[in-house]
Design a protein around this nucleic acid. Structure first.
Lengths: 224, 224
DNA sequence: TCCAGCAGTCGAACAACGTTCCGGTGCCCG
DNA sequence: CGGGCACCGGAACGTTGTTCGACTGCTGGA
């Protein structure tokens, strides 16, 4: 439709007016749409409109809406490719996790949408780099697996908690009030008054430090 | 309707035939229904049918379907109340996390449904016990917060990964084949061949050990 | 004794969603 | 030139969450 307004000679240069609809374009549009309203108001119709395409056309390239979500989630993984490995495994893991966290905070929905395995190429290459780094550092196979999962849960969970708790300031304030009203039941939580509104950057850094410290200590003490 | 078939005298004994519909009964039925098919085929109509009630009656007790999910998720928290504190903080934390994990594996959907803050009384009392234990152990307020979040992410994430990867054996086998076919791109993952089908019990125990070890070491080395 | 009012219930309906059916294009290759 | 194929899309179906307004039976005050 925007195409039709361009002058004819300009149009004749390429037989296809637009690049044909591909899975990549669908994925990109889905990410765009999910970024706009975090509520997850992703709709097949809205997605098609955004692409200037009929709704049912999507189903030629994609089997189901779940596929679109899986693609979008994996695209966020792929958006931050693993950095080149250095000589310090601890630094490598830290930057890998930090960049992953930044990507998750840029696309908060991808931290929450986790109902499916989501073992796409993006996730796999990310995991590959993580496990390769740990393996190169000399850890046992058992330690590598366990450590990679706890590290994965840490980034993912941290970003998810931060994202869900950030939503709706009104609800958060209400929750804080409710917490202080029931301070008899939750003395510790009410005392430190930082459960709902917290410094997530240092929370993340400290948690990461615990895991890495414990991992090295346990590996030094003797393998499993 | 089943009520109408009972003989009249039996009916007259109590004015109210059934205990009236309460939020508690709705919550219990929702948990039941979610336990049956993990897909999350929870429907307001199905829920009402299960309770022998018209569909729209639910909306007198509950504002929206999200409320029902929040209630169900929090009910799983409340189902495993915090054990009485002992003298070993490490053992306390371990049993708290282990029982939480068992509950999550009993109700796999509650590990996956995490789109909302879910700061209900069940979650709060669980968190309260965790942070109280860590505080009693002498950790800094900063360490308590960071540690409780990383521990929370660990249980939650471990159970979620285990649950999502357990679904659909066919898909998992396909994934394993795909992994080995692309072994050039993911040498480490393909080599240890345990990414998709793993021993989650020891993964969980090891990860927990890393965190607790690192936490104690860092606290001993001097507060933040 | 009556009757207003309220807690609780529900049938019918609405809008939106994911998805399928089937009919269309236009291009390529024989 | 003409059949087939990759690709597109309008219309429709069944299901979902939710709302509207009407109905019931109880309770308490006049």
């Amino acid at each position: 439709m925007a195409e039709r307004s361009r002058s004819l000679w300009l149009r004749t240069t390429s037989a296809r007016p637009d690049p044909p609809l591909t899975v990549e374009r669908i994925t990109a549009a889905a990410v765009e749409l999910l970024d706009e309203d975090d509520v997850g108001q992703l709709t097949m119709r809205r997605l098609a409109d955004r692409l200037g395409v009929g709704t049912t056309t999507l189903y030629w390239h994609v089997d189901t809406k779940e596929d679109v979500i899986d693609l979008a989630v994996d695209a966020v993984f792929a958006a931050t490719p693993p950095p080149p490995p250095g000589d310090d495994w601890r630094a490598d893991v830290t930057t890998l996790l930090t960049e992953r966290r930044a990507a998750l905070l840029r696309h908060p929905w991808s931290a929450v949408m986790r109902r499916r395995p989501a073992v796409g190429p993006g996730f796999l290459s990310w995991m590959e780099f993580l496990q390769a780094t740990l393996t190169r550092a000399g850890f046992t196979s058992r330690d590598v697996t366990a450590a990679s999962w706890v590290l994965y849960s840490h980034v993912q969970g941290s970003a998810a908690s931060q994202a869900t708790l950030r939503w709706s300031v009104a609800e958060r304030r209400e929750g804080q009030l409710m917490l202080e009203r029931h301070s008899a039941s939750y003395p510790t939580l009410a005392a430190q008054r930082h459960l709902l509104d917290d410094d997530w950057d240092t929370n993340f850094a400290l948690g990461l430090a615990y895991v890495l410290d414990g991992l090295t200590a346990r590996a030094a003490a003797g393998a499993t």
